[in-house]
Simulated scan of single mutants.
Amino acid sequence: MKTLLLLCSGLLFASSLQAGTDRRSGWTDARQLVLVTIPEWDSHDGTLHAFDRTDAGWRAARAPTPVSIGRAGAAWGIGLHEPQPGPRKREGDGRSPAGVFALGTAFGYARSARTGLPYAAMEAAHWCIDVADSPLYNRIVDAREVGTAAVAGSTEPMRLDLHAAGDQRYELGFVIEHNAAGEAGAGSCIFAHLWGKPGQPTAGCTAMAPPAMRDLLEWLDASRHPVFVLLPDSEYRRLQASWSLPRLP
């Protein structure tokens, strides 16, 4: 798969988190599926599966790999699925959003990456805004474009290595488009990214080993309308048939 380089500034990249459109047709047309299952709502460890949709149905595209999610488990997010009964994702709750989500831009510290997703190289001025009452809530912005006052209070610099003593978690990852319309307080800055330590839970993202992330990004192809699904085992059993999800062993 060819290397893609996308040089983004200001709100051009931010728009990937705030599309604000109904993309259920993208779910129907999805030809790639990134699936994370967890044992219970409060579990913070899970398994990631990757599937291709063929004329015969879903088939495994990669071997399952362990991942970590939010330290408090999961709760229903805002994505391509209809609202469901159960816990709902809120800002700062330590839960990863459950449901079906479009994949946004891949990002990282390098100038380019091997992926079929659009890619944005992060710099020290890039921040994801997790301040719930900000008009830029749930957007990745460039402080050089929006001003330093606009990123004040945010706890999500996209170059963690430069802001947090060499932290490599955001060296490579991609956006999971939870709460794309930016509903205040409904949760923000949800990514798939690298583990801090193997098995270490996150604040609400999905984390994995670097080789697993590189392999996943090389496989992902935006033209195949990939989606990300995260569900506890009980919800997966309940929804597998009606959501046309693959059967798991």
Rank of each mutant, 00 (worst) to 15 (best):
M1Y: 11
K2S: 07
K2M: 03
T3P: 04
L4Q: 06
L5D: 06
L5Q: 09
L6V: 13
L7M: 05
L7C: 03
C8T: 10
S9G: 13
L11F: 08
L12R: 12
L12K: 08
F13K: 02
A14R: 06
A14S: 13
A14N: 03
S15R: 15
S16V: 04
L17P: 03
L17F: 13
L17Q: 15
Q18C: 10
A19E: 10
G20K: 06
T21P: 00
D22Y: 11
R23M: 11
R23Q: 14
R23P: 01
R24Y: 03
R24Q: 08
R24P: 04
R24K: 12
S25G: 02
S25T: 08
S25Y: 08
T28D: 10
T28F: 14
T28P: 01
D29M: 11
A30V: 04
A30I: 11
R31N: 06
R31G: 03
V34Y: 02
V34A: 09
L35F: 15
V36E: 04
V36I: 15
T37M: 13
I38P: 03
E40Y: 01
W41R: 10
D42T: 15
S43G: 06
H44K: 09
H44A: 14
G46D: 11
L48E: 02
L48V: 05
H49A: 00
A50M: 00
A50H: 06
D52L: 07
D55Y: 00
A56L: 01
A56H: 09
A56R: 12
G57N: 12
G57Y: 04
G57C: 06
A60N: 00
A61F: 01
A61E: 03
A61K: 04
A63W: 01
P64T: 01
P66R: 13
S68L: 09
S68I: 08
I69Q: 02
G70Y: 06
G70C: 02
G70H: 12
R71A: 02
A72I: 00
A72K: 14
A72W: 06
G73K: 12
G73D: 06
A74R: 00
G77T: 08
